[in-house]
Design a binder for these strands. Structure first.
Length: 476
RNA sequence: GCCGGGGUGGCCGAGCGGUUCAGGCGGCGGGCUGCAGACUCGCUGAACAUGGGUUCAAAUCCCAUCCCCGGCUCCA
């Protein structure tokens, strides 16, 4: 089965064929570290993480690079507000970013280049662009001349002529064309700056990504990802810079995710509805947030709200329960027809999962295959008291591997339970007493105990003579 | 003005020319349970924004209309 991806460049699904067979090089635009990342950022990073995991699952060797933008206007302004250095600010929020993605089980990029550590490379790239006639210097600033790059607009569909008409572009008299963009910005008083052939200054935002992407991944990379808002101007400009420099295609496949809305509205500063990952994790667990973020296709809009989180939680719970149930079925030596049937059906669902993912990473459809698997497992468990050992391991492995593609860790994400021995001892004693009452058919008292414990967040579930207990989290 | 994405059952959300119209949530009923939960089976809901058209066949293609949302400016 071939993998198809929707390429923004061309706006259609294409078969995915990496530049080098068996190997995929991915670049993802990382955060500008001037604040905590929000759930929209998280969506982009989770989507990219799923792409990375699935490609690896398919057997590709994946190299994944994602930058950290640690110098730009927003950082400078924020640092000034807080009265700290830009380095200090960037350091603080870089660490916060790393903590946040770790919680969401987003794997660390293989390389996480920082802009400020690649100034020489960027200066060199800018010099070459000037030499080649694609850029010009004005009063210590360097601009890219889009009129020299004839493919300008091929990604976004914007035409240079149309952009000139765009009334909202601030007219900068230094620019030859209003849509020309800065490669190097001269230092203003009070701003940090680096020495360059054009005087002290700092790099423009776009040159950072294309330079670092090419440094670590080569002249033509396989996949470049980001939110759709980056299509223009950021990615358009990256293409211009990179291709002007090398004369070769910069990126083979551009993948862009849709927006996340909050209660039906776009997150924005003016509405004051920015939800950081940290805010979100106050009302749901990380794995639920992650699962929610992939519950719609990455190119569809998705709305963040309590009901949606609640649904995500229940759905995930269903899958994990099935997995745990399978894991707890006692094993036996001989294999039965039922075991064979289970394996065959599970394998069929596995194929459905793969087909869904092969079709431009259709996670909601893939997840539906997981639900079918859960149903198969539950039905099996309803009708069989034991399972043959290797059959169990095989089904378990399929299930765990597929959840792993989605980045849902099973073992590590088990419900938090108190490990406090005293607490456990007392609770288990209480459960024993309650079961004794049940044996004596003292239902009122037994139910009262269950109800009261529930109010405290302790859930009792009777399954025959056994009683399982779990602690329900306060959230949701 | 220039580019672009959408409108699918109570809700979420796949499908994008053709078997019973995914899957989940919710609701109803049965099974299992002392009850509850979990699980399971069945049902649910005349779903495809509207009006035309193309086709043997359209939620899926075309045209028009209405309505949402976004990019063109820092933004995932």
């Amino acid at each position: 089965m071939v993998l198809k991806v929707f390429n923004t460049l061309g706006r259609k699904k294409e078969e995915f064929i990496p530049v080098n067979p068996g190997e995929v090089r991915i670049y993802v635009c990382g955060p500008t570290v001037y604040d905590y990342i929000h759930i929209g950022n998280a969506r982009a990073f989770v989507v990219a993480d799923v792409v990375r995991r699935y490609l690896r699952y398919k057997g590709f060797k994946v190299k994944y690079v994602s930058n950290i933008t640690d110098i730009d206007d927003k950082i400078i302004n924020r640092a000034r507000e807080l009265g700290i250095s830009t380095q200090e600010l960037a350091e603080t929020y870089s660490n916060a970013y790393l903590e946040d993605i770790a919680k969401l089980n987003i794997e660390r990029p293989d390389v996480m280049p920082r802009a400020t550590q690649h100034i020489p490379e960027m200066i060199e790239a800018i010099e070459r662009l000037i030499e080649k006639g694609y850029a010009y210097v004005v009063d210590g600033d360097v601009y890219f001349d889009i009129s020299k790059f004839k493919d300008y607009g091929k990604l976004s569909g914007n035409r240079a002529e149309a952009l000139e008409m765009g009334a909202r572009i601030e007219v900068n008299p230094k620019k030859k064309n209003p849509a020309d963009f800065a490669l190097w910005k001269s230092r203003k008083p009070g701003e940090p700056g680096w020495h360059s052939p054009w005087g002290k200054g700092r790099p423009g935002w776009h040159i950072e990504c294309s330079t670092m992407a090419q440094k670590y991944l080569g002249e033509t990379i396989d996949i470049h990802m980001g939110g759709k808002d980056l299509i223009f101007p950021h990615h358009e400009n990256e293409i211009a810079q990179a291709e002007a420099l090398t004369g070769k295609p910069f990126v083979k496949y551009w993948l862009h995710n849709e927006w996340l809305t909050v209660e039906g509205e776009k997150m924005s500063k003016s509405l004051g509805n920015f939800v950081t990952v940290r805010d979100a994790l106050k009302i749901c667990s990380p794995v639920v947030l992650r699962f929610f973020l992939i519950s719609a296709h990455y190119r569809s809009p998705l709305d963040f709200n309590r009901a949606a989180l609640k649904t995500a939680e229940r759905n995930l719970e269903r899958l994990v329960r099935a997995l745990e149930r399978l894991n707890s079925i006692p094993e036996r030596e001989d294999r039965t027809v039922e075991d064979e049937k289970l394996i065959l059906k599970v394998e069929a669902e596995k194929r459905k999962f793969e087909e869904a993912m092969d079709d431009d990473f259709n996670t909601p459809l893939a997840i539906s295959a997981l639900f079918s698997m859960a149903r198969l497992i539950n039905s099996y468990a309803d009708e069989n008291k034991t399972i043959e050992r290797t059959a169990k391991l095989r089904v378990l492995k399929v299930f765990v591997d597929l959840l792993g593609v989605l980045g849902v860790k099973w073992a590590a994400d088990k419900r938090e339970t108190r490990t406090d021995e005293l607490f456990k001892g007392v609770l288990e004693l209480l459960i024993d007493v309650r079961n004794e009452l049940r044996r004596m058919k003292k239902w009122e008292i037994a139910d009262h105990i269950r109800d009261e414990l529930r109010k405290m967040g302790i859930i009792l579930e009777d399954a025959g003579k056994e009683t399982k207990w779990t602690i329900k989290r306060e959230d949701a």
